[in-house]
Nucleic acid binder design. Structure first.
Lengths: 183, 183
DNA sequence: TTAAAACATGTAATTTATTACACGTTTTAA
DNA sequence: TTAAAACGTGTAATAAATTACATGTTTTAA
């Protein structure tokens, strides 16, 4: 057991779709995959080197402009195999979400705590924004039924994230109402 | 900004309720707070030392049995102040949930992928179990309206976690239905 | 034409988290 | 009575993640 270092699998998964540079991969964490996983370039470049040393990926150098060298990484056959085995393996660990707001809430003992309304309102604003963002993403990335069928997994998780945020917003609203009654 | 090292605040928050030993704190992460945050004793003991060096907590030694020394930690006035300021500070960062299953799903492109039903079913079993566990917790920890009013924050987050899991389970069921139609 | 933004790749230092090592005491149940 | 489980406190090694340091090229817009 003890399956860690998920970054390597994310890189393999992305390279399985198309060859990319380290920079491209870094950008992917700012957009697409960044909705639900983070990594910085300082993590990505060394990981690419390791994956190449292990034979899961290779790179070719392309020249952009006059002399800027880009390393375009490709997945190898063993890389594809490793990716497949990771996906096929069970995923029995439900990682608890480390939500700082939830953590703070734990230490609020009194339901008349004067900080509570402000805290809830701040989160409501944040999650409402996130929800709007996700709605936007879903309609721009998956405008048609056909687009949903290709990249079905991506569609599913965006849909899932949307539902989760909808619930979060509803819960915040409901909780705000509840505490307003108690004041 | 860049407010990190949440463990120190969790420790302060717990010590703010009552004096505890390092061992007690460790146990708290297996039960109560463990629902939504993790830490091992190897993290806790050094953190206790640092908090004490900084004057946020102190300890007194009690003897259990013949010679077993326990360090019972107390929060200090500056510790209470630090805890309060952390809670009062804004919480503007929505940390993305690092859910390995969701990550794997991202790399499933085809909605007829033969691995999909099994993956969804595994998660359904896990989240159904978690949901049952949370329901159980909610009724045992907060059996009465009065118990909900004290430790209101804890009640809220358990209720929130319950709602979140309910949604997760519903989404999994719905997705399983959807893919069964497409086969 | 020139400055800023974006592209591109790396390493170093620090912090945080996990797993393993290490040791001893007290309580509980067979 | 004795062995196992729970109590109790630490350190070491490793792994992972974040922030900072470091450098250069190409494109774009003023």
């Amino acid at each position: 057991m003890a399956q860690k270092n998920k970054l390597q699998f994310i890189i393999l998964g992305l390279l399985n779709q198309q060859p990319l540079t380290g920079y491209d991969l870094t950008k992917a964490f700012d957009t697409e995959i960044g909705e639900f996983w983070q990594a910085q370039h300082s993590q990505i470049y060394p990981q690419l080197k390791r994956l190449e040393d292990q034979g899961y990926i290779t790179h070719e150098i392309t020249i952009s402009g006059a002399k800027l060298e880009k390393k375009l990484y490709h997945i190898t056959a063993t890389g594809t195999a490793l990716l497949s085995s990771w996906i096929s393996d069970g995923t029995p660990d439900l990682t608890a979400t480390k939500d700082e707001f939830i953590l703070k809430l734990y230490f609020i003992q009194n339901n008349r705590d004067p900080r509570l309304p402000g805290m809830l309102q701040e989160q409501l604003a944040l999650h409402t924004g996130k929800l709007a963002h996700l709605k936007q993403r879903l309609t721009t990335v998956f405008p048609t039924k056909a687009s949903q069928t290709e990249n079905y997994g991506h569609f599913l998780i965006l849909q899932h994230a949307l539902g989760r945020e909808t619930y979060y917003v509803d819960w915040l609203k409901q909780t705000l109402q509840q505490i307003s009654k108690k004041r």
